[in-house]
């Protein structure tokens, strides 16, 4: 990471700490904010946050690794999560999964070479009545079939 990038990230974290406070309960909101902007939380960011909250960096790392939506390693610009739980599975998740893997040329857990998309499975999205479902960043898409899923993915930048 370049020095100026570090500085601006440090400033951003400082702002977030001002907004949410420097107590432990602020940890998740701060992590979520960094995650949603950068799609991951770097080791530098983790140590900055730990410093502000007066906790150990390994505790931040531990919390990040616990939650599926927080990442310590870089991800693509968009994170696509396909629901793998039973109702979506019954509704044809496998076909959708195959189609998008083929289209993007990557498997689940991987990121496209142009870093446009990271593909992940997720557990129940609460869209069981309209599966298969996936979320692209924060937006939810339901009633997927292979064609529709590929179209949605082709439209994200």
């Amino acid at each position: 990471m370049l020095v100026y990038e570090k500085n601006s990230l440090a400033e951003e974290i400082e702002e977030l700490v001002k907004t949410y406070g420097n107590e432990r309960p602020s940890l998740l909101p701060i992590l979520e904010a960094i995650q949603s902007k950068y799609n991951y939380i770097s080791d530098f960011a983790q140590q900055e946050i730990a410093q502000h909250l007066a906790i150990h960096p390994v505790e931040v790392y531990s919390v990040i690794s616990f939650y599926s939506f927080l990442h310590a390693e870089p991800k693509g610009r968009n994170i696509v999560r396909l629901c793998q739980t039973i109702s979506c599975d019954l509704a044809g998740k496998s076909k959708v999964a195959e189609a998008i893997q083929k289209e993007l040329g990557i498997r689940f857990g991987e990121t496209t070479r142009d870093r446009r998309i990271t593909l992940e499975y997720t557990n129940c999205l609460g869209m069981c009545d309209c599966g298969p479902a996936m979320i692209v960043n924060d937006a939810v898409y339901t009633h997927l079939d292979p064609q529709r899923a590929i179209k949605i993915l082709s439209e994200i930048k």
């Binding site: 906790i55 390994v58 505790e59 790392y61 531990s62």
Partner: peptide
């Protein structure tokens, strides 16, 4: 209070 070790993942 050194904080080297923690449980990670789940």
């Amino acid at each position: 209070e050194v904080g080297v070790l923690e449980a990670v993942e789940r």
